[in-house]
Simulated assay, not measured.
Amino acid sequence: MASYTYGNVSTGTNLHFIKTSPNNIVLKTAGKNVVKTEEYGVNGGFFYLKDQISIAVNNDVPVRGVVGGYGSGWFNEKYARGTLVWDAAAGKYSVQIVPTASEIEVIDRSRYWAQGGISMTLQDDTTWKTLAKLQGMPNIDGKTTRTALVWNSGLNIWLIVTDTLCTAEQFRLAIKKNIGSGTLVDGIFLDGGGSSQLRCKEKVIDGDGRSVVQMVAISAK
């Protein structure tokens, strides 16, 4: 089975998380609700109907379709958006604000994954919201369920879903206060609302029951 730790913390905003190694992450198509798949993980980036409109690539291969194809996961459609990149050759993460996977900078294009979303900018509490708005974050001030990926200085990654209706600011603050014991470096918001879904042995969250196009899964290797 996949190697991970599940946890739940609530201080007004309830956070469910899966903590694992970046080397256990694989981006996959879903085509159904995350809880109805056979994978452990959370929902991924933004989509429209059956098209993936956030970057989602493993080793330069988009999760759905072909390189350069619309809806394949090769593009952050309409916006250059915060994209979480794990560069396995370098052993480091980054958030790169790019419109297309071809602009992602890594050492070895056969050894990385990249998940598009919206920059959380965890080290800058004054400009994060402006940057998120520039990246087209939907419903930033509305109260809804939300999903995020964050990492820390120890290179752990957390896949986080809240089932509390909250603003982006409340979600971000809860993560900063309750995840990583002060070691968090940065992260991204993923799709939220009814798309916020999580599946592992200990917990399932199905959002509003809808299907999602793509998910962040934990491999069983």
Rank of each mutant, 00 (worst) to 15 (best):
T130I: 15
N156P: 00
A148K: 00
M137P: 02
G82T: 13
L155C: 14
T145W: 14
L165Y: 14
P62R: 02
G136N: 03
K92V: 12
G136M: 07
T144S: 13
D163R: 03
A148R: 01
V161H: 13
L122T: 01
K143H: 09
K78W: 12
G154R: 13
T164F: 12
I160Y: 07
I160F: 04
K92R: 05
L149A: 07
W158D: 07
L84S: 04
A90S: 15
P99L: 14
L159D: 02
L149W: 08
P138Q: 12
N139M: 13
T130S: 09
G117T: 09
I118Y: 09
F75E: 04
Q123P: 01
A90V: 12
S110F: 06
D141Y: 09
G71S: 04
A80N: 05
K129Y: 15
I175R: 04
K143E: 06
F75Q: 08
I118P: 07
E105R: 06
I157T: 07
S102H: 05
T167S: 04
T147S: 09
A174F: 05
V85A: 05
V63M: 10
Y93H: 03
W74Y: 04
I104Y: 11
A132Y: 08
G154Q: 06
L134A: 07
Q135W: 06
W74D: 13
T167K: 07
G73T: 03
L122Q: 08
L155T: 11
L134T: 06
P99G: 02
A88Y: 08
L134K: 08
A80S: 15
W158C: 04
V66K: 09
D141P: 02
D60C: 00
R109Y: 11
V85W: 05
G68C: 03
A174R: 07
G73C: 14
G117L: 12
Y93E: 09
A80I: 15
R146D: 11
G91W: 02
E169G: 00
C166A: 13
T164M: 11
N76H: 08
Q123H: 13
I157G: 00
G142S: 09
M120G: 00
Y79V: 06
M120H: 01
S94R: 13
Y70D: 08
A132V: 07
W74K: 12
A114H: 01
V66F: 14
T127W: 02
A89T: 03
V85P: 01
A168C: 09
W86M: 10
A88C: 11
Y112N: 08
A148D: 07
G82E: 13
R111W: 12
G142D: 08
K92H: 11
M137Y: 10
Y79A: 05
L84R: 04
L165V: 06
A132E: 14
W113M: 08
R64V: 05
V150C: 05
K92A: 13
G117N: 14
V61M: 12
A101L: 11
W151R: 00
E77R: 06
D87Y: 03
K129N: 05
V98R: 03
R64E: 09
Q115M: 10
E169I: 03
G117E: 15
I157M: 10
G142A: 08
G71N: 04
E105D: 11
G117H: 04
D108P: 14
Y70T: 00
A114N: 05
Q96N: 07
K143N: 07
L155G: 00
L173F: 08
N152D: 12
M137I: 15
I104R: 10
A148H: 00
